[in-house]
Amino acid sequence: MQVSITVNGQQRTDEVEPRLLLAHYLRETCGLTATNIGCDSTSCGACTVVVDGLSVKSCTVLAAQADGAQVTTLEGLAGSDGELHPVQAAFRAEHGLQCGFCTSGMVMAAIGVLADNPDPTDREVREGLEGNLCRCTGYHNIVRAVRTAAQAGPAAGQVPQAQEVVQ
């Protein structure tokens, strides 16, 4: 079947199998491999992307379901001049990543958390990221990074292409 999906601001049309997962569409059809797959039970959140303003786990969405949607992945966050999104910058400043495998999903989920709650407490960040697993950081610096990113204001809870993001 054919799908038309706007990925990181660029519209594209592809022929896909009806059962193709959005995660595999992004990775293999679009070649956007920042989105990782860490489980097969919607548990780990490594594949989190933003679809029409919602942060979703792309392993649990069919590419067909995203037909007509706007999808933002990690690759679509930084400005064209290379300027990092506030959440990206905060993850670096606070050492919110180690092996980096959960990072793409964690950053996208954090944007969702901040869209929903621009100034969360530690506890609220932890609850907001409960569906995103990390084995390296013990979450300590991820929580700090999200709190730091919040200081950047509303931009921290937005993706480019002026999408409004809600959790």
């Binding site: 491999t33 990782n36 797959i37 990690l74 990206q88 670096r92 495998f101 793409s104």
Partner: peptide, 20 residues
């Protein structure tokens, strides 16, 4: 702060399943 982070945070590192 880590010199390797900008890649992880913008395009993602190339893990084995990402190889092209």
């Amino acid at each position: 702060v880590r010199t390797e982070d900008p890649l992880f945070l913008t395009r993602g590192a190339v893990y084995t399943d990402d190889l092209t």
